[in-house]
């Protein structure tokens, strides 16, 4: 197992390196540069370019960047004056992470439960309720859900604050808005997977032993049914935790999402790269955790991984 994790770690680092290289080239290919939107005198512009090392050949810039990256230095933002990318991430990520964790824990747990209920009541009214929730969750965009939540719970009924992020009651609406899609997706997946597992031969074997329906469901069905859900969780977790621009802007939360989108608009090279690497690393780690979880749930994968 340890060897397996080590191997995965190595592959992950390689993945991130490839990611950095591609993004590094792509941002430079975009028309314009970080300073083209500001009206600067040629002297200042030249100074700035020298300051950020644009006067050197691209390959040298790349090597410098990688060198800095190795010691964990993402460099300075080119738009937010005097702010390092590290500090921007350090300031904004906790908000995104906190919000994301809340959203995820609600949506994953409720999603699984909802999927279970739907599968166990297949074709009955509870099943249809879950289908309706799932359809709303997957088809209505999050900014509409966010807006509706703000209008009803925030303004009309005054139950929760409409925006900002300053305490527990502030987290409720954005967490729901953020997690709704995941909830819908997880519940659908869980339902389908439960219904598939129920037709497996080993469920019949379990039945032939004269054990109770409840035990069959929780000992034989759920553990086998949860695999597909775990599979999609990796990428989902990474994307939800690193912040979403839309939800964060609607609820005025100072998370990472805003910086990510604006960095691209501003062509803030270092910030784009830094955020992408951070996001990429997160994705890779989340996937790795999922793979380890996999092995814990399904013994067949444990062996194959050794």
């Amino acid at each position: 197992m340890f060897k397996y994790i080590l191997k995965r770690l190595f592959i992950s680092l390689l993945t991130i390196l490839v990611l950095v290289t591609i993004v590094f080239i792509l941002v430079r290919l975009m028309p314009g540069d970080p300073f083209s939107s500001d009206k600067l005198t040629p002297e200042i512009r030249l100074n700035l370019e020298r300051y950020y090392g644009f006067d050197k050949p691209l390959i040298i810039q790349y090597i410098t960047y990688i060198k800095n990256l190795l010691i964990g230095d993402f460099g300075y933002s080119m738009k937010y004056v005097n702010q390092s990318v590290n500090s921007i991430i350090a300031d904004s990520f906790p908000y995104s992470f906190d919000l994301g964790m809340r959203g995820l824990s609600i949506s994953i747990s409720l999603g699984i439960v909802l999927g279970l209920i739907a599968a166990l009541n297949r074709g009955k009214s509870l099943d249809y309720v879950s289908i309706i929730i799932a359809i709303i969750g997957t088809s209505v965009p999050d900014f509409i859900i966010g807006g509706l939540l703000q209008y009803f719970f925030g303004i009309k009924w005054g139950m929760f604050p409409v925006a900002q992020y300053k305490g527990l009651e502030y987290t409720v609406l954005p967490s729901i808005a953020l997690g709704f899609y995941t909830l819908a997706m997880v519940s659908r997946l869980m339902r389908a997977s439960m219904l598939e597992v129920v037709q497996q031969d080993y469920i019949k074997t379990a039945k032939s032993k004269g054990i109770s329906k409840f035990r069959i469901t929780y000992k034989h069905q759920i553990r086998n049914a949860i695999m597909p859900v775990v599979t999609v969780l990796g990428p989902t977790v990474a994307s939800v935790l690193t912040g979403t621009f839309v939800i964060e802007s609607i609820f005025a939360i100072p998370g990472m999402g805003k910086y990510y989108v604006q960095s691209v608009q501003n062509l803030d090279y270092t910030l784009i790269l830094g955020m992408t690497v951070f996001y990429g690393a997160f994705l890779v780690i989340a996937n790795m955790i999922v793979d380890i979880l996999y092995g814990m749930i399904d013994p067949r994968i444990r062996i194959a991984g050794r």
Partner: peptide, 12 residues
């Protein structure tokens, strides 16, 4: 049962 390959719970 007929098929021992699929008739045992793989996670137990």
């Amino acid at each position: 049962f007929q098929d021992p390959m699929t008739s045992l719970n793989p996670t137990m």
